[in-house]
């Protein structure tokens, strides 16, 4: 078993990653390895660069420095093994597509240009919708859904991607309690099936229960590891509290400098 893990590349490996916005670093020198089959939460205060880390890893933002490896290779090679759940606000909910259409988009990565999703893809999409208990709403326009239902549609789309590594950007933001519980169940089930899931999370009070590994982030990496080791008052204080890091001062002055 041990040998197996050492030869297989980890799903996500980040080395010295820096992302700058207006020349101001929003992420600085991040080193991170996410082991296979883990359920990892990224936590940190507002503006810590949690979503930025996700977008940078997915190639949605240009890197100022460092590199990212997905399953030991560049993202483009393993795009099919990578699923993504963006923030809900990132799309126009008046767009003329229904729930089924959106879930089918999860299959698009498996289809070459010019090919439409077929019967098999529809079956997968239906199964994924059923898994998040949204099948009865399949024909609804996406604008006529509650916040929690919209999140479930995005999750179903990610499931339909049938990936091995998932990135989710604040899936718990603004959803009802029932949806939150459903998402947690889903995450655990995915983990049980051997998937690796990385979740940006804003709620410190639930982080310990939901995830088995945590990444504490505040512009730079504060700590990463099993929840039991990382979720300590000391490290949390370092992440959230006060102005312990000289870096944040430096960052501030970099931003003001012309």
């Amino acid at each position: 078993m041990m040998k197996d893990f050492s030869t297989t590349a980890p799903p996500l490996e980040v080395h010295d990653l820096t992302v700058a916005y207006d020349r101001r670093p929003v992420l600085y020198g991040i080193d991170l390895t996410v082991p296979a089959g883990s359920l990892t939460g990224i936590i940190g205060p507002n503006g810590a660069g949690k979503s930025t880390l996700l977008k940078a890893v997915l190639g949605l933002l240009p890197l100022s420095a460092g590199w990212v490896k997905i399953f030991g290779g560049p993202l483009a090679q393993n795009a099919r093994r990578t699923g993504y759940v963006p923030q809900r606000e990132s799309v126009d909910w008046d767009f003329p597509v229904n729930v089924m259409d959106v879930v089918l988009m999860g299959r698009y990565g498996h289809l070459p240009p010019g090919r439409r999703p077929g019967r098999a893809d529809r079956e997968i999409a239906r199964a994924c919708l059923d898994q998040v208990q949204m099948l009865p709403l399949a024909r609804r326009q996406i604008g006529n859904l509650s916040g929690g239902q919209r999140q479930r549609v995005f999750l179903a789309r990610a499931l339909a991607q049938e990936s091995d590594l998932y990135f989710m950007d604040e899936p718990f933001a603004g959803v009802d309690a029932a949806t939150e519980a459903a998402i947690v169940d889903l995450l655990r089930e995915m983990k049980a099936r051997g998937k690796t899931v990385v979740v940006v999370h804003h709620d410190l009070s639930t982080a310990r229960d939901y995830f088995d590994r945590l990444v504490l982030l505040n512009v730079r990496l504060v700590a990463a590891g099993p929840t039991a080791e990382v979720f300590t008052p000391e490290l949390l204080q370092k992440t959230y509290g006060g102005r312990l890091t000289i870096l944040s001062d430096v960052v501030q002055s970099l931003g003001e400098e012309p």
Binding site: L60, R80, T82, D101, M105, L111
Partner: peptide, 21 residues
């Protein structure tokens, strides 16, 4: 007709389309 799904997805959710490579 040929690139229907590509045009729809890039219009609807550009970030997701980019994450597909």
């Amino acid at each position: 007709g040929l690139f229907y799904k590509e045009y729809v997805l890039t219009s609807f959710d550009e970030g997701f389309a980019r994450s597909l490579g």
